[in-house]
Design a protein around this nucleic acid. Structure first.
Lengths: 341, 341
DNA sequence: CTGAAAGCGCTTACAG
DNA sequence: CTGAAAGCGCTTACAG
């Protein structure tokens, strides 16, 4: 592997000049720059990242802390992050903290110990409160996507509006007897998780319109879990006319149970979800759309801006802990309709 | 941030001794080691990764090149990799090359230019042939998961056996008129992709048992894509009695179409897939199981072994390009049964 | 516009 | 068991 020194010598300049020519810094004549560049190309020179890091203190890497990577929401956010990071010529260092917080603490410690990054994004539920507040030690821009949090800058769907829109859609169709299936968040680092907000929005709408009050059901955040619960629920004679599901996975589990029980959708039962996962369309699922990949792109854009303002270390000003919330979009398909007469 | 020098001084030893004490190298008295460790802890010392990299030439990072991150298979492999890497105290650097090869080349170039890792895993279809062969330049252990490849060590499901088991299962149930829905691989870097192998295995079984020869159908590797195709196919009077799908996503699309058309499964139609995705059970899908997370763990284990044998740079011996193939497991559920009389 | 030199913070022969 | 010193390969004031 040729070093900068080899390039400099071959091009007949000093290491300093070679470095400037290659990095694009100004104060180098066009001819010199061109010659150095060609020489570097000919030699197959690749700057040592380790040396550059040591000299500049910059890793050109952004870290991602996520509770999972094999589920739609997390994968989509990660995809957006990876895409945006690449556009800014930054690498992404992935810390998969493990299934929803379990055992994640040790991995978090390892990250604090040796995960060297210029900026960090934590995805919902990655961390518990105590760990979250330690992120400040890092002295780098930190942002969260998935839930609003007072600990850092955050980006996420407006869950209040999403919960409201879902319930209001069914109310407009004439439903008076709805049930909310809340998808369970196994770790709740902060006061109001997404599922809590969606649930409370549902309760507000229920109260406002004087709907029948049914107890909220809590199910695992998986199609399977919701499916099992829904099979029992829907078999009962006094089932609701509509179900507001906390997520599409839950909604799809309900739809599947309805199909298996011979309950026609939407004639006998309406179902609405939140997310608009790729399979929702094929199932005809009415849902509240969000775009996690976009959130991932936006969070990286914010980090890049913060980095540009304070290239090294801790900003002198108070860190930005503002919140960006995305407006939900109602997507009407065939899983919702007027309730049975 | 305290440096090693600060720790050394505070503990009353040289940097060399402090370094050895902290790294666990031997040749340090137990008392000294303990004292240095405590001092480091008190000071909140964290070794600079950049400096360590520069001094040792080791990044303690493994790279992952993947065509996507928001689909079950890739997410699962990545999860296994992240878990195993963490167990070996290595970080993972993620390169999401983008949707199945499109635009992935530039990202690949960026990786070659500055992705500094000790070992690399490429997931199926990440790369096209020309890029694949350039991986040797890296002089680090490289392995592929998802498809057998002559370019590197590889790990994947035995697709021949999987395709055979799927078809044979239906033949045993009495089916003579089967159709294969092959899931489309958008980029085929090597001669025999997974889907090709599964397809050819199907053809062998068809020939062996003298089944009706139907043209192979190719559908997108998504539930939606398969669903659209299946709706047309299943509406026809001469539809087959069984469908062998290249993946579970495809199989689920077929199941959905069958439900919507009022075709009873398995009485009127049998469907089998490959993968055993988490939702397969709720749908009662019979399938051929594979465990991508395990493949991810195994590939990291192999890299760690290779690294242990050749701690620095290119091994003198010929690189290991052997192939590990995993035996498929038939999981029988309720989507398959005897064909209609 | 260019170069000599110091510095980033570790590790590791080498010598004792 | 311990230390002084060289070295990993860049970047960046500083001086010219």
């Amino acid at each position: 592997m040729p070093r900068l020194d080899d390039v400099a010598r071959a091009a007949g300049v000093s290491k300093a000049t070679a470095s400037r020519a290659l990095s694009g810094a100004d104060g180098v004549s066009p001819e010199t720059r061109e010659r150095v560049r060609r020489t570097a190309g000919d030699l197959g020179f690749r700057a040592s990242g380790a040396a550059r890091r040591l000299a500049t203190g910059l890793t050109r890497t952004i870290g991602v802390l996520t509770p999972s990577v094999d589920r739609w929401y997390f994968g989509s956010v990660l995809h957006g992050i990876a895409h945006a990071a690449d556009a800014h010529e930054h690498d992404v260092l992935l810390y998969d903290l493990g299934a929803f917080g379990r055992g994640g603490h040790e991995k978090f410690e390892r990250f604090m110990d040796r995960g060297e990054v210029d900026g960090l994004v934590t995805i919902t539920w990655s961390l518990v409160g105590g760990d979250l507040s330690r992120l400040d030690e890092l002295g780098i821009p930190v942002a969260t996507v998935g839930e609003p949090t007072p600990h850092s800058r955050s980006f996420c769907l407006d869950d209040d509006a999403a919960g409201e829109q879902a319930a209001e859609h069914l109310v407009r169709l004439g439903h008076r007897d709805l049930l909310h299936m809340m998808s369970e968040t196994e770790v709740q680092p902060i006061d109001a998780s997404s599922s809590d907000r969606r649930k409370r929005a549902f309760e507000r709408v229920s109260a406002k319109h004087g709907l029948r009050m049914r107890p909220i059901m809590t199910v695992p955040t998986t199609l399977e879990g919701a499916h099992a619960t829904a099979r029992e629920l829907l078999a009962r004679a006094d089932r609701p006319t509509g179900i507001v599901a906390g997520t599409d996975e839950v909604a799809l589990g309900v739809l599947l149970a309805a199909h298996q029980l011979g309950i026609r959708v939407p004639e006998e039962l309406s179902v609405i979800g939140v997310d608009d996962v790729p399979t929702a369309a094929a199932f005809g699922l009415t849902t509240i759309r969000q775009d996690p990949a976009q959130h991932g792109e936006d969070v990286v854009a914010w980090i890049m801006t913060a980095l540009a303002e304070h290239p090294h270390g801790r900003p002198v000003t108070e860190p930005d802990r503002s919140h960006t919330s995305y407006a939900p979009v109602l997507v009407i398909r065939s899983s919702t309709g007027a309730p049975p007469a």
